[in-house]
């Protein structure tokens, strides 16, 4: 064995992102990758579901059938989750949180469809975390005066002594990085382990990897979706403040 099997990156073990179509933008070669394709597939699934649900709810009946029940269950659960975490700010954010919840959940479990999960690409998760970051900053500026923000920045020490401020700034900047890396690393670890199982045991990986799929795709993906949305809600609620009506 001239080279270690894991390091060789041969075709058997494949969990990397591949380029599909090269695009030339401002002299730079940019690739349309498998992540983009998988995101488009996930978005297509969500669109089909949304259009079907919209049609169903427009002709909603008193005695719901199975599909209407499922839609109402999803909306009720998401509403309850957001309302339990954000309190009086819930009506403003429930649409956004529900959207990213469904998108991340579908992305995470899209490994079951044979896709490479789009959330196992750092670009996707970092974009989501950046949206959260700007939501936090926007709501903080909107709901707090400049003096309150400054006091908050110097928080353990009095506001006229901003020695502690750089550390607080760093911890604010670390929020999107840790949010995105958490989601990314969890999904990526599942993807890598599944790729190793299928790549190294290709003759023996017959039915039992289904159990691994249940853990790595369904359980881990669901938990990480929940955690991402909960942390987003917690940060935004904190930024909004709770004292004013």
């Amino acid at each position: 064995m001239s080279q270690a099997i894991l390091l060789s990156g041969e075709a058997e073990i494949d969990f990397m992102i591949h380029g599909i179509i090269p695009v030339e933008i401002f002299g730079q070669k940019v690739w349309i990758t498998t992540s983009h394709a998988c995101i488009l597939i996930v978005m297509g699934l969500m669109l089909v579901f949304a259009i079907a649900a919209n049609r169903k709810i427009k002709h909603a009946s008193e005695r719901p059938d199975a599909f209407q029940n499922v839609i109402e269950l999803i909306v009720e659960k998401l509403d309850g989750m957001v309302a339990g975490e954000m309190g009086k700010w819930a009506p403003k954010f429930v649409n956004y949180i529900s959207t990213i919840f469904m998108f991340i959940l579908l992305s995470n479990i899209s490994g079951l469809l044979g896709l490479r999960p789009p959330t196992a690409d750092y670009g996707t998760t970092f974009a989501l975390a950046l949206i959260t970051f700007f939501m936090i900053r926007y709501n903080q500026i909107r709901h707090n005066s400049a003096k309150e923000i400054w006091t908050d920045l110097c928080s353990p020490l009095p506001p006229w002594l901003p020695i502690w401020m750089p550390i607080n700034v760093i911890s604010e900047i670390a929020v999107p990085i840790s949010l995105s890396l958490r989601l990314f690393a969890n999904v990526l670890s599942g993807t890598v382990i599944m790729a190793l199982v299928y790549g190294l045991l290709n003759k023996f990986a017959l039915i039992w990897p289904a159990a691994l799929h249940v853990y790595f795709d369904l359980f881990s993906g669901g938990i990480q979706t929940y955690v991402f949305c909960m942390l987003t809600m917690t940060y935004v609620t904190q930024a909004c403040g709770s004292e004013e009506g």
Partner: peptide, 27 residues
């Protein structure tokens, strides 16, 4: 349950940093 999961997720971050570093070094 939800508080515990949230705390666990935050505690998990350092381990995941290690994992990311390992994956970068390997692949």
């Amino acid at each position: 349950m939800s508080t515990m999961l949230l705390g666990q997720a935050v505690a998990e971050t350092t381990g995941l940093y290690g994992l990311v570093v390992a994956l970068l070094l390997l692949f």
